[in-house]
Design a protein around this nucleic acid. Sequence first.
DNA 1: ATGGCACGGCAACCGTGA
Length: 257
Amino acid sequence: MIKFVTWNVNSIRIRAAQVAEFCAREQPDLVLLQEIKCEESQFPKLFFSEIGYRAEVVGQKSYNGVAVLSRDPITVLRRSLPGWEEDKEARYMEVLFGGVTIANLYLPNGNSGGDAGYQRKLAWMENLRCHARTLLDDERDVVLAGDFNVCPTDLDLAEGVLDPNDALVRNESRAAFRALVWLGLTDAARALHPTETLYTFWDYQGAAWQRDRGLRIDHALLSPRVAEHLESVAIARSERDKPQPSDHAPVVVTLRC
DNA sequence: ATGGCACGGCAACCGTGA
């Protein structure tokens, strides 16, 4: 069985103890982290090595940053999204584990920088789609997981939490997400929980957590053979209820062998 | 009623997030 987690931690230095406690309890094979908000030299690798996890890090100062925690060694295949190699924002890495190519991504939000900022989000998504097509054409077993910054349907957000023009719910964002899925990927959470209210993010403001005014924006997309092995998807909501939490909860996916 | 919350950088607030 493979057990992996995707979690936007909103600073790994603030959340290291919580993430380590989570790993020690849940014992995932892989933890895909987003928004670590530091350079590799600042990542608390020693701290995680004490509980048996190593870290591969693609970081930058202050913003963004992705990393993968693992108990066993993994191969890093890429440290940037093809077509965005020159971009200084650390938003993508790809690793090989158990024969599966696993992409850890932090998609641009798209609400800052005006229309140019939004177009940049769409361009990033189109690059992701092209790269995903290449991986699938190669007959590879693939997982694309992370913070997609897209609520795919109206079932994926509480009513009234976002303006209809918000970059997370705009028609073009949703169409780009569908175009990605329609390559033949399976949205793991919706495959097993097609009609449930599922959220992975609750804003710090306006008592969003207490009122359960959330969004589902953290996803795991699976290639066909991987999807056949899908066993469970769980959102670890209790992590959002802890002191000084991330605004995102971990998404825990298990695949049977 | 145009706030609100949290982070990093940096040393007073500001950009960013979603």
